[in-house]
Write a protein that binds this DNA or RNA. Structure first.
Lengths: 214, 214
DNA sequence: ATCGCCATTGAACAAAAGGACAGTCAGGTA
DNA sequence: TACCTGACTGTCCTTTTGTTCAATGGCGAT
């Protein structure tokens, strides 16, 4: 069990923190210059309230003062954006400052074992946003389609209905469906919306760095 | 402590599973029709090997047989793509089938408390991918929507189906539709595809007919 | 306390989308 | 010529989407 340090602005400790980690230290956080803990031997619980000092910058600063330590951010007003920001800044956990002791201990055990902790809501948003773009992005998707399929696919990507496309291309609605089915198959998507995302390059996941880290 | 059920194709149990949960059940998984467990009272460990039966579909099928239960996927050949797929399908955890007992128990404790479990690698990828993208979503339109409508609209813009969104937000599919109908109305679009184009800021204008009718 | 907004859901319904199976026709190639 | 591919179409059927009508409960404002 590593040492637990709570960093907060107002030097008051929340009852839940004590309940979770009776032996933890409490420090005011503009801890200038001095080292906070022996490298890699502590879990830093960083309490942020609002965005006065940018939480992400704060995380980076604290990371400098406690190299190798896990930083978990406790937010008074949690939001997906803030969570995203601090995690990107190097925090390994993000949760509500009022989380119950069980959850705090849960988080501790996860991060102490090298894991990251993200709340279900944020996580699901991440998954939702990522899921469609993970499937093999090649930018030259349209090249995989025949001329006609391409026309139909582009119309769909522009938001047209099958009926509209049929009228526009002067073919039956049935044929539009046939071309679409072929396009879905060839591009490996399951419906017109994902086809649209693919063609419109909405994913742009190709630019996301692989990130091997830690 | 909930009941633990391991579903696997070959009816052999891995030593690590036993070590982690001595009292767990082991079942072959094409368990047709019959209910697997009392609703919400079990953790289902779904063992997948390769992609013969699509893991994501399998998750959905099992979810139907064990409503309210947590499904954790154990993969013989884990990949970010597979993880993403099963999590999107409703699984609440994804890890290597050979994970050591400590990790399995860790995962169990997380999901039993309503959390999602995603390995550090995949999670980092999600965060990295999201952080670069989250700024470019067209928020001006989203401001016209209520908090809940926004969540649904964003999921749709990411390519999710109503069923998936319902599962993700833990509401009925009917409610998803209600939020969507409201969002269409407020943003002046006629269906999910055009909503996606609007939110993702896709410049379509030229090819997409205004179409007020209906 | 009444009003309006929001979140939620049910039932029923209509329309759109998509899959399965089957078939014609034109053009190019082994 | 036999074979293949792409474009095109039909019918039948299932699933998904979206609407209409209707209702409940929470919550903040007047």
């Amino acid at each position: 069990m590593k040492q637990h340090i709570f960093l907060t602005r107002r030097s008051e400790t929340l009852p839940t923190w004590n309940a979770a980690f009776p032996g933890a230290s409490l420090l005011p956080y503009p801890a200038s210059g001095s080292q906070l803990a022996r490298p890699g031997e502590a879990v830093i619980w960083l309490h942020v309230a609002g965005d006065k000092p940018d939480p992400a910058l704060l995380v980076q600063e604290v990371a400098g003062l406690a190299p190798g330590c896990c930083i978990v951010v406790l937010s008074n007003v949690p939001s997906d954006e803030e969570g995203l920001a601090v995690l990107e800044a190097g925090a390994v956990g993000y949760t509500n400052a009022l989380a119950v002791p069980e959850v705090l201990r849960q988080i501790a055990s996860v991060v102490e074992n090298g894991g990251l902790w993200v709340g279900p809501n944020l996580l699901q948003r991440l998954i939702a946003g990522m899921a469609t773009r993970s499937t093999q992005v090649n930018s030259s998707h349209l090249d995989k389609l025949s001329a006609r399929e391409k026309e139909v696919a582009l119309a769909v990507a522009g938001g047209a209905s099958n009926k509209e496309i049929a009228r526009r291309l002067e073919i039956s609605e049935r044929t539009v469906k046939a071309h679409l089915t072929a396009a879905f198959e060839r591009l490996g998507v399951r419906d017109r919306l994902q086809l649209s995302l693919l063609i419109n390059g909405t994913p742009q996941a190709s630019s996301a760095p692989p990130q091997t880290l830690h």
